Simulated scan of single mutants.
Amino acid sequence: MATTDTAVWRERGNPLVTGSGTGPLHGIRLAVKDMHAVAGHRLGAGNPAWLAEAEPQPAHSWAVGALLAAGADVTGIAQTDEFAYSLNGTNAHYGTPPNPAAPGRVPGGSSGGPAAAVALGQADAGLGSDTAGSIRVPSSYCGLYGLRPTHGAVPATGMLPLAPSFDTVAWLARDPRTLARLGDVLLPAGGGGGQRPFRTALVATDLLALGDEGVREAFGPAAAGLAERLGLKIEEVPSLGGDPGERAVAFATAQAAEVWECDGAWVSAHPGTLGPGVAARFARAAKVTPEEREAAEAVVHRSARDLIAALPDDAVLLLPAASGPAPLPDQENEHKAATRRATFRLTCLASCAGLPCLVLPRMSVDGLPVGLAVIAGRGSDRALLDLGVRSAGQDFRAVR
């Protein structure tokens, strides 16, 4: 039977891997999602059958190596949803990591292990990945700060791919300064340095409508408080172009085609080794035709162009990071599917366009955290991290 510890960690040390001993991240304890290579240790991808066949990695992933060189210690390898192909944070083999910010509820996925480790105080930061929301959703559910960077800004070398056109190295932390310190190491030097200051905060009515009633009520005060703190002018628009439902279906189809390219052969050769939710997604991925993929990618590319055109260099887009607070693990399947669908429609926006997205723990619904997501233009990652640090000068949570 899975224990709380094994639901969070696949391997844990004191530390598991020691950093350089000096550098800007000296003293930072890092939880590494089990999608990143850690030299001398196996990569498990959240699946025991995959782990059983794995050999110790010969080298660190680029991101793990960079953080170790900067002085961080790897406390351990944290659990993930199988192959990172989920947003819930549950794992049929290892159990569900706890969510101390929302006791009894899921932590969100697929970076649920790192999120739980950070929320529990067992690590200072979590290194994960984000393809369709895998850092943003657990950040929202666990009341953490998280960043999905510009696609390609951080090398994904040594990170197990899910859908390479959308995969990003990503990270989360309890406070914005730690989040920014990791960004100083991982992001390209000078990125965003020449960007104009943010002046406008866009709010799209059709995206806000994807949040449940409590999120919609909390969003207004949270967005207004953030804008006041940072000197931003809020500008409400009906839409940024395109239908959120059509965009989400297209993204899911394009993503699924790449997922099957990456892992379909292994899954086919190992029937019965996946948990039910992930197995169902792989089964759908196997059926995507070349024509369906081509049509989906056309919608994704159009959505990317629309968003980039609608987002000036001096503007950010504010939206809920998830459609609601963390759900209960035994939520009815119909309700679970509706929650995932609404959240996916929010998270796939930045993924389609490859834009950076920062999650701030700035809303509370019935005492449960919900993140406020901030999307900005390509390459503005450092400016977003600075926004996060400046936003923390006061607490303006909107409590329902």
Rank of each mutant, 00 (worst) to 15 (best):
G194R: 13
G194F: 03
Q195L: 15
Q195E: 13
R196H: 08
R196F: 00
R196L: 13
P197Y: 06
P197L: 06
F198H: 04
F198W: 02
F198Q: 05
R199K: 13
T200I: 13
A201G: 12
A201F: 09
L202Q: 14
L202D: 10
L202A: 14
V203E: 10
V203Q: 10
T205C: 08
T205M: 01
T205Y: 01
T205I: 07
L207C: 08
L208D: 07
L208H: 09
A209G: 13
A209H: 12
A209W: 12
L210W: 13
G211T: 06
D212P: 05
D212M: 10
E213C: 01
E213F: 04
V215G: 11
V215K: 09
R216N: 06
R216M: 03
E217G: 07
E217W: 02
E217D: 12
A218V: 02
A218D: 05
A218G: 14
F219H: 09
G220Y: 00
G220L: 01
P221D: 10
A222M: 03
A222G: 02
A222N: 00
A224S: 12
G225S: 10
L226P: 00
L226S: 04
A227R: 02
A227Q: 00
A227L: 00
R229I: 00
R229K: 04
L230V: 07
G231V: 02
G231Q: 10
G231H: 03
L232M: 06
L232T: 00
K233A: 13
K233G: 11
I234H: 01
I234N: 04
I234M: 08
E235H: 08
E235C: 02
E236R: 13
E236D: 05
V237Y: 04
V237M: 05
V237C: 05
P238F: 08
S239G: 11
S239T: 15
S239W: 02
L240T: 12
L240S: 08
L240Y: 13
G241N: 07
G242P: 11
D243C: 10
G245F: 07
E246A: 15
E246H: 05
E246I: 06
E246S: 12
R247L: 14
A248M: 14
A248N: 14
A248W: 06
V249E: 15
A250L: 07
A250P: 03
F251D: 11
F251H: 15
F251L: 07
T253I: 08
A254W: 13
A254T: 08
A254K: 09
A256M: 11
A256L: 03
A256I: 04
A257D: 06
A257Y: 12
A257R: 14
A257G: 12
E258Q: 15
V259I: 15
V259F: 08
V259H: 05
W260D: 15
W260V: 08
C262A: 15
C262R: 14
C262I: 01
D263A: 14
D263G: 00
G264W: 02
G264L: 03
A265E: 15
A265G: 05
W266A: 03
W266S: 03
